[in-house]
Design a protein around this nucleic acid. Sequence first.
DNA 1: GATGAATGAGGATTCATTCAT
DNA 2: CATGAATGAATCCTCATTCAT
Lengths: 223, 223, 223, 223
Amino acid sequence: MSPAVTHTPSDESRHKRERRKEARPGELLVAALDLFVEKGFAATRVEEVAQRAGVSKGTLFLYFPSKVELFKAVVQHHLSGLFREWNAEFDTFTGSTADMVRYCMNQWWERVGATQVSGITKLVMTEAHQFPEVAHFYREEVIEPGNALIRRILQRGVDRGEFRELDIGYAIYSIIAPMIFIIMWKTTSGMPNVDPSAFVASQADIILRGLQACPPPTPPSHT
Amino acid sequence: MSPAVTHTPSDESRHKRERRKEARPGELLVAALDLFVEKGFAATRVEEVAQRAGVSKGTLFLYFPSKVELFKAVVQHHLSGLFREWNAEFDTFTGSTADMVRYCMNQWWERVGATQVSGITKLVMTEAHQFPEVAHFYREEVIEPGNALIRRILQRGVDRGEFRELDIGYAIYSIIAPMIFIIMWKTTSGMPNVDPSAFVASQADIILRGLQACPPPTPPSHT
Amino acid sequence: MSPAVTHTPSDESRHKRERRKEARPGELLVAALDLFVEKGFAATRVEEVAQRAGVSKGTLFLYFPSKVELFKAVVQHHLSGLFREWNAEFDTFTGSTADMVRYCMNQWWERVGATQVSGITKLVMTEAHQFPEVAHFYREEVIEPGNALIRRILQRGVDRGEFRELDIGYAIYSIIAPMIFIIMWKTTSGMPNVDPSAFVASQADIILRGLQACPPPTPPSHT
Amino acid sequence: MSPAVTHTPSDESRHKRERRKEARPGELLVAALDLFVEKGFAATRVEEVAQRAGVSKGTLFLYFPSKVELFKAVVQHHLSGLFREWNAEFDTFTGSTADMVRYCMNQWWERVGATQVSGITKLVMTEAHQFPEVAHFYREEVIEPGNALIRRILQRGVDRGEFRELDIGYAIYSIIAPMIFIIMWKTTSGMPNVDPSAFVASQADIILRGLQACPPPTPPSHT
DNA sequence: GATGAATGAGGATTCATTCAT
DNA sequence: CATGAATGAATCCTCATTCAT
């Protein structure tokens, strides 16, 4: 995180009408993300966002033509290029596929789940209906690259005999579901506390056992 | 204009109105659930709810003193007694624990995921911050009974040697996560389509293999 | 003017939440016309309009979806059918064409210039650029029927030998110009006072002499 | 970006700026007149004015302390001395009074109607209520000198027997009305097109016939 | 009970004006 | 002098809530 994000201005920022054109949009974007996640889009007042970013209402509209555009910018800003280099890492991965899966899940947690970006996921799940473009954008930038990456990993596991034969289209979701879940869970107040690292480790363990070539489970006896 | 608007209602229209009287609050609750899920709490106008329930705005306020109370009522109405008889079913279950898990997941899907009730889950995840009481209520009515049920099932599996030794506190979430996920996913517009039945079956399959007593997966090589 | 226009409510209207759905739009339209003429469209606050009509801001938006629509409605309301029966009157006119012209000008003054409707003319001249549709509507409802009527009258005068040969396309404006002028003049504060009746009579006199078959004026000596 | 934006202005750009310095207020005044006429006072943004004059918003406020003062300056700037030499021209006029009238109307058209200055008239008619001082100023600078001039001319015509006996106080308006009218008309979008020169000629012709000593028109038969 | 007209607090957005650079 | 980022008062408009009928 850039130092500009700090919410307690240092003494340099003593002037009211300080010129920080470069920093402003970013600060607003961060403030907006926080509030949108915390209170939802509709319940967040633009003035609050401005205030938290340390500027006046009018300044916000200097950078974003409307609350809706601010929202879109929030999503795009925090998402751009999320998967760019990520994919590359896996091209050169040499360990076991199980390790890839674990690495993938841990990375997701560290780079998304544990950061501001997880708020984006929450936001998209929460406000998608009102902003189809945003949902679309998220799908293109996150869901589809993510799916593709996981598909590649699983395929590798199957190809190398590490995993059993799988309907990969659905197996993908055994990785995705816990990742999305943990983000929703931790951003939902009132739900029982779950330690994310332990959760991720536990899920990875169970799923990997479930994917591996080993004797089948007790088959469904009836139904 | 519908006959109901007429100042001298015909016999039929009066009849229709009377016959519905009892049902009013229920219709409002259903309409409200639909709209809250579809558009979110803030973006839903009470007038829409009334309209969809076929009554006037004023009538809604006759039954629910405010929009917030309507929201709470929606959650409570659709949740009350959800787990009452469910737990009982499992007391008398005689099959394998794997079957219990499968049955549990299928039941959840059929009785919650595939119905209006799934909207409640979406709502809670989405609006919990604004309505701590609602989150609390959901936790008490759904999360905790659900957790307890799953815990019992998993414990039974471990006790009977069907499942390996597990950190049950986390293993629970391998059941819960996919169920919550699928509900969020299907109620989020713009996400890739997933067939819920196939999803549930696939998840159950992987998870059950992962829970069973069988040779461990390739252990994490480092980290 | 209908009694509903009165701005000092009689004692019947003592209840705050009085139901007068029928009257409201008309009262708002009158209040809006007054204020738009007095202060211009932009400088008029919708709340003022509502206040003057004796209702709250919200009520105004119950009847008119926006300030702009209110503006359009003001013009349309006060204009609709202005020329409908007017034209007919002239079909059965039997006197001299000079009398027709005088009658026409007097009527315009009485039915337009001296009434609220003159404000519409002012408004259109003033705000036409912002509301092309309104200008268009005014042209169709007033300018063109008016032009056509005057054209008919002048043609009659020429045909019957009462007027000399005229370029009627321009002669029309010798009637129109003073009518528009007097409206602009009297609605423009700060201009010298002009008695409209005397003005109309004087103009009619000069113009009619100018239109009649009689020795030409001293011709332009050069140019 | 224009070179003026650069932080290290090249020689040319500095030159350009310096050369213009003197002209700034004038350019702003012209830009403002155009926009005020085109869109009205309220609907014109000071930023647009500045932009059109090629300066920044801040610079405008360097020369004019407020939007209102800018408006007043626009009127005064374009009006000052409008009638100064005009009156003189007529002192030495030797032709017929009809020619004087024609000359007067043509001059008005050429020096006012056809130029930017006509916008001032439009503005005054349009915004007088908001700016009583401006209306007052216009009256003193234009209306009254104009009236006086026309009065002198008409009086000359009557004195020399070229015109019949007239109520000069009203006859004045037979000259003024068409001049004001044509300005309003041509600056009002959506009105039928009128060729100003032909209009002026036609009006002059009719009015002069109407003013001249000649047999009276068919008198009003009744009323 | 039911209705829907009326209300007005609340919030997004605009834009004249200021002022540090 | 000139700039343009920043400000915040002003205003349109929405919508939960009230209440006379």
